[in-house]
Amino acid sequence: MTALLELRNCSKVYKSGFFSPKVTVALDDFSLTIDEANPTITAVVGESGSGKSTLGSLLMGFIGPSSGQVFYRGKDMTTLSGAERWQFRQDVQAIFQDPFAAYNPFYTVDHVLTVPIRKFGLARNKEEAREKMGEALRKVGLRPEEILGRYPHQLSGGQRQRIIVARAMLLKPKIIVADEPVSMVDASLRATILESIYTLHKELGVSVLYITHDLTTAYHVSNQIVVLYKGSVMEGGEVSNVVKQPQHPYTRLLIDSIPWPDVSLQWGKEPVIKDDGSSPTTTTGCKFASRCPHVMPKCREVAPTFFEVNSQQASACYLSESSPALAKSDLQRVLNKA
C-alpha cells in the first residue's frame, strides 16, 4: 500500500555567505512515513535549531528537500499536477505556533473559516457555510455565537488557537502538522487545545505530526515519538518507553530540564554542557558529542547507528551498543509498533 505522505532520505541544507558559504544541515537524511490506514500521532521533539520546524515545512510542501524525496500518495511532490496539488492542500493542514500572527487583524475571525470553505467549495450557500462553521467551532469546544463576528483582538489566545484547529478540521484533512501549537498559550489552556487536536485524531482518523519541545505534552498526546538534535534522530519509539526510560543522553537532558510542578523533585540534576561548537551540523561523528556527558573518542569519529533497545524503542548512541544494531531505514518499523 502506498503511504499517504512519505519523506524518503530527506536532507535540508541551508547555506549562508556567498564566497565561503557556512553550511547548516537543518535536517539530515530523515525518513518518515504517514499511513492513511493507520492514523497515528507522532511527536517530534527537540530544542530550537533541531530541525523540527524544517521537517514540518517539508511535510507541508512549503520548502523542498535539498536531497531525498517527498512523496504524496506515492507520487513525488515535485511532479504533482495542479489537481493533485489542490488535493494535497486539502489533505494536509497546519496549526501554527503563534495564534496572534495567524490572523489578519482587519478581518473578523470568520474570515479564516470562510476562505477555506469558499476556496474548496465546501458549501453551496451561505446558510450551509454558516452551519459548517458552527459545527467545526462546537467540535473544538467553542460556542459559535460567542466567536463569529468577533475580531481577533477580542478573543483570548486559547480561543484563537482553537479556531485555527477548527479551520484545520473544516477541510476534513488526513494529516495535521501542528508546529508548537500550545507553546504560546497559558499553561492552564494547553489541555483544552491538545484535547481538541486529540479528538480530531480519534473521531476523524486524522494523523497528527505534533512538533514540540515539551516532552510532557508529547507524552500525553502522542503514540510515537522522534527526538531530533541538529537534524538527526537521536532516539525514537513508543512514547512512554522513550519518556520513561530514555536511553539517549540527549533525551535524558530534555527530560531532566522539565520544571516539574513538584517541590520535592530537584530540577536539573544533570548539568547542561554548553555547545562549544566542536560538533558542527556537518560532522561525521555524533552531533551531540560536544554536549554529551558520556562522550567517548569514537563518538567524535563515526556517528552511531540505531540500536534496538527494545522492540518499540531505538536509540542512536554507543551507550546502547549491546542491543542489536538497526539500519536507519528500519526506524519506521520500530515506530510503527507503537
Partner: peptide
Amino acid sequence: SLPTLGQKGVFRGIP
C-alpha cells in the same frame, strides 16, 4: 492542570 508523567492522556484544563 500541568501534565505529569502519571496517568497518560489525562489533561485537566481549567474550563
